[in-house]
């Protein structure tokens, strides 16, 4: 365990304590909000130090949201989903946070889909283990007592292993797609432009709202080429986006 992680683990109670203080004071938003700001900073530090779990990501996102930092909350959810894309709490929080973003029409991203949002790699491993047990028992009985059900059981196990292999391949494929086009979160209302400079005309008549999500394609000269949820590609200043 590195010293940074050790420090983060030892101080893990602090952001939780600040969060709970904020909950106790929620009757007055002006008093509660600074507590959530403090909690968000603590969760950020722990996350940077390597304390990364779906629960930590959830609490981090909620602290940012209650502190009034909508883009930070959405970025924290995405950081957690990169770790556990199937996590139901994170997916639900992402939906809720997106409701707070004033998206223009057809630019709101779809709910994360695919196999990754439904199945954990550990689920696939557990399924493969069960299939391997069935195949192993079937083969063992086939070569020992030669029971009539041995071969069908081994066949069921083999099919299970094949399904597990296909699922693993699909998960890896979806993860690669996610890595190739990482999510960026817009921190202020920004007009996507046709080129990487302020002198280029705007791509749309509306601005991308604060908290909006785009997919990064390239970076050049302090600008990011990004794909919107409706497939339109434009350029945004690097200062206008954060990466989860």
């Amino acid at each position: 365990m590195t010293p940074a992680v050790l420090v983060a683990v030892l101080s893990l109670g602090q952001p939780d304590a600040a969060f709970r203080d904020g909950l106790d004071l929620r009757a007055d938003a002006a008093v509660a909000r600074p507590k959530f700001v403090e909690a968000a900073k603590g969760y950020d530090a722990a996350w940077q130090a390597g304390e990364r779990t779906p629960a930590a990501a959830t609490n981090r996102a909620r602290a940012h949201a209650l502190a009034g930092d909508l883009p930070g909350a959405i970025a924290a959810v995405h950081a957690g989903l990169r770790l556990a894309p199937y996590d139901a709490d994170l997916l639900r929080d992402l939906d809720t946070l997106r409701d707070a973003v004033e998206y223009p029409q057809a630019v709101r991203p779809a709910r994360p889909g695919g196999l990754r949002a439904r199945v954990s790699p550990w689920d696939v491993l557990a399924f493969a283990a069960l299939a391997a047990v069935l195949a192993g028992v079937g083969l063992a009985r086939r070569f020992t007592t030669r029971d009539g059900w041995a071969v069908p059981l081994a066949a069921v196990g083999g099919v299970g292993l094949l399904i597990a292999a296909i699922a693993g391949w699909q998960l890896a494929r979806e993860e690669r797609r996610e890595i190739d086009k990482p999510v960026l979160v817009v921190v202020r209302d920004t007009t996507p432009r046709k080129g990487n400079g302020d002198t280029y005309p705007g791509l749309t008549e509306w601005k991308l709202p604060r908290g909006g999500e785009v997919r990064e394609l390239h970076r050049r000269g302090g600008w990011v080429q990004a794909e919107l949820a409706n497939g339109v590609v434009g350029w945004l200043p690097e200062t206008a986006v954060i990466q989860p």
Partner: peptide, 19 residues
């Protein structure tokens, strides 16, 4: 003014081993 938000945001999520 009370702090408003979705109900689930006012809960601390505890970590679990699984998954």
């Amino acid at each position: 003014v009370p702090l408003d938000g979705p109900p689930q945001f006012f809960q601390v999520r505890n970590g679990s081993i699984f998954p």
